[in-house]
Design a protein around this nucleic acid. Structure first.
Lengths: 234, 234
DNA sequence: GGCTGAAGAAATGTGCACATTCTTTCTCTC
DNA sequence: GAGAGAAAGAATGTGCACATTTCTTCAGCC
């Protein structure tokens, strides 16, 4: 009866909230790669016991959002350039398979929806909204996969995008230049024409362009981060 | 100093061993889908504290090897037929992407290695070794992905195969008939000929055949399982 | 002066006690 | 006799205390 009254075990999904908060902070780049996440500090920030934090951190590690080394705590992953390229390559290969499937059963409805998306993307690029461009660019590829209506495939892509989003901070494509949008358009056009080879070609070159633009940015030297602000945003 | 002497915290990877034991038992079908895994029982079997078991179970759940529902414990997943088909479809789509990539850079060395594998597969099929056939069939697809040398892709496939292996128990393709082997052979032949369309076609039909053979087998009614034997095997 | 090593501080890991929730069973009522 | 409800038993969830490991700092020595 110690904490039964005040402490409320009430919140059955407090874990979930904390999990989401940390995951979002990582995915949005608010936590620099390599940053150490100490259990005590997090427990204080979220106002929960250390055990709760522990559980969440280990779950995030199992989901590969964090890296935990025994007795040394958790860190935001700091992927090498090779790993980054592997993730892009995996995405490229996966998308090739998706396009092969879509070329057989793409509906006019889907194609129109993709066109609508392209309009948005071009608008964002034209007004120089970099944040929106990055988001919409990811959404384009998400739409392609989601069109298949396969939860497994959607999850796989979500995983890959999640892991590469960290890297936008580290290895930042110089700019998400407007040409990327046109490359998306080329893919859609090929799909509409029922031209699988063309779609594969366009997709492949799109990814090669993105990879080409990868720049190694010096690791942020454990810049002082306002953990509390980064985690509690939104 | 309570248990410092006898209990040995010695084993730093006891968790790992337990994790592997349970995972292997699931993947090899020694634990029927839907089976409940109680923490106390497992703790007794492995001779460790319940906390240790808890940690492992939750990790397995994060890896989607187990299903945990809050306050109700862990169960071996019991995928619906729809989920099974989704997993096969995901595998098919992924393999299409892999083949597109391989058709551009398949080396003679790789092709020869695949041929060697086919010989093994045919041998197993001819002598009616069902267990070996299933294993080798999985290995064939694994080899295709591994040939790209991309850890991300290999892991994705490993995941899919892991989840579908459970189902061999539930929805068991009537027999892994020898024709499946020949379908593998068709894929390799197309690759060797540099015929991407042919390889895609062969792969697609291979998967459709496998899915066609899926049979719904009535859930095993929580058959009495010797947990201890199933978990400690090997 | 720089390096080594030991002691203290801090962070992570683990078992245990107890709280909570779920399941089962027994009883009482209609 | 069947169904609803309550109580007992069993299983899971959580905070805490303490063990262990790692990191830091500082003193001593070459």
């Amino acid at each position: 009866m110690r904490q039964a009254t005040c402490k409320i075990k009430a919140n059955p999904r407090a874990d979930e909230a904390i999990h989401c908060a940390i995951e979002a902070a990582i995915l949005h780049g608010r936590l620099p790669p390599g940053l150490r996440l100490r259990e005590h500090r997090l427990a204080a920030i979220f106002g929960v016991s250390r055990e709760r934090i522990r559980k969440v951190l280990h779950r995030l590690a199992a989901e590969r959002r964090l890296e935990i080394v025994p007795n040394r705590g958790a860190r935001v992953p700091c992927p090498s350039e090779a790993e980054v390229r592997a993730i892009y390559e995996a995405h490229r290969v996966l998308e090739a398979g998706v396009l092969a499937q879509l070329s057989r059963l793409a509906s006019p409805v889907l194609l129109d929806r993709l066109d609508t998306h392209l309009v948005e993307e071009r608008a964002a690029a034209q007004r120089g909204d970099r944040a929106a461009s990055i988001r919409l660019s990811g959404d384009f590829h998400r739409h392609l996969v989601d069109a298949l209506g396969n939860a497994e495939l959607s999850r796989m892509l979500r995983d890959l995008l999640g892991r590469s989003s960290v890297m936008v901070t580290v290895y930042e494509p110089a700019h998400h230049s407007p040409c990327a949008v046109d490359e998306h358009g080329t893919i859609v056009a090929a799909l509409r024409a029922g031209d699988l080879a063309g779609a594969l070609h366009a997709s492949r070159h799109h990814f090669l362009h993105v990879e080409e633009r990868l720049r190694l940015i010096p690791p942020a030297q454990e810049a002082t981060v306002d953990l509390e602000a980064a985690l509690l945003t939104r």
